[in-house]
Design a protein around this nucleic acid. Structure first.
Length: 287
DNA sequence: ACATGTTTAGGTTAGT
DNA sequence: ACTAACCTAAACATGT
């Protein structure tokens, strides 16, 4: 497998947004997750432009990690000492870019934060629909991947204080519970096992995503939850970084109006045949 | 102290 | 022109 080499784009600013640079770094890692410092390292090693003004762009990058729901934070296990958490890509973020442009993501549906509900036992909460055209929380949205992050962020205190599983809180709010979230957790935390339905979740583990204790993602022992049907769709995988075309031309040339829409990085093709052997590709194969 | 993470605010740019 | 995505700065909180 090709490995990224030393550098590309000389001192020019690469035609990638911070989101795509970060996604590249994460996707290129063996574990599909990286601590912040390694994301910095990946970018600085490959793009000399980012070896300067580190305060500026690293602040922006941290802002992107926190602000964008396509990135999820995964706490370290006790046997993984070090600073900060790992950052991973949300399982549903595989089609963020289209039309050959890595400067801007495809247009997304607007996600509205739900109003915080009363504590459990205080009645059903009111929530705003998200997605377009008033779609319900359980259907019609195209990019639902922000939801678990929002729930986990907004209701972390409730979850931690009550010991309720995140799935229970989400169910309480009227949200579907993504099986992909469970699958991702189990892939990152193999000892947890597969949580493939709300009715059969493991218990007694310490940590999980969102800074929530693992048990909060699982069923309290002895309790059963009503199963919520969740449509399972295939998760498009991000391509290896070697498949991402290097674009050395003016960014305005990156999105020819005649190019067919493409839904994943893997499907991108270089704008010109010669660009196929572009700077980034060449450094990728000379490690 | 410093790195990491969160949030707000304001400006810029690209797509429609 | 309008909107969404993006960039940058900055204040502040938290963790090591």
């Amino acid at each position: 497998m090709p490995r990224p080499g030393k550098s590309s784009y000389s001192d020019q600013k690469p035609p990638y947004s911070y989101i795509s640079l970060t996604a590249m770094a994460i996707q290129h890692s063996a574990e599909k997750m990286l601590p912040l410092s390694d994301i910095y390292k990946f970018i600085m090693e490959r793009f000399p432009y980012y070896r300067e003004h580190t305060q500026r762009w690293q602040n922006s990058l941290r802002h992107n990690l926190s602000f964008n729901d396509c990135f999820i934070k995964i706490p370290r296990r006790p046997d993984q000492p070090g600073k900060g958490s790992f950052w991973a890509l949300h399982p549903d973020c595989g089609d963020m870019f289209e039309n050959g442009s890595f400067l801007r993501r495809r247009k997304r549906f607007k996600v509205l934060r739900p109003e915080p509900p009363p504590l459990p036992g205080g009645g059903l909460p009111q929530f705003q629909p998200y997605g377009l055209n008033g779609s319900s929380p359980t259907s019609g949205f195209k990019h639902p991947f922000a939801i678990e992050n929002i729930i986990g962020r907004d209701y972390k205190g409730v979850i931690q204080a009550s010991g309720l599983p995140l799935a229970s809180v989400m169910h309480h709010l009227g949200y579907p519970v993504s099986s992909q979230l469970s699958n991702m957790v189990s892939s990152v935390w193999p000892h947890v096992g597969v949580m493939d339905s709300m009715a059969s979740m493991p218990v007694s583990h310490e940590y999980g995503p969102f800074g929530v204790p693992m048990k909060a993602l699982c069923h309290p022992a002895g309790q059963t939850m009503p199963a919520v049907p969740v449509p399972i769709k295939p998760t498009p995988a991000l391509p290896p970084v070697s498949a991402i075309p290097a674009l050395t031309v003016n960014p305005s040339q990156l999105c020819p109006s005649t190019s067919p829409a493409s839904s994943s990085l893997l499907e991108q093709t270089p704008p010109t045949p010669s660009a196929g052997k572009s700077a980034l590709h060449s450094v990728l194969v000379h490690s």
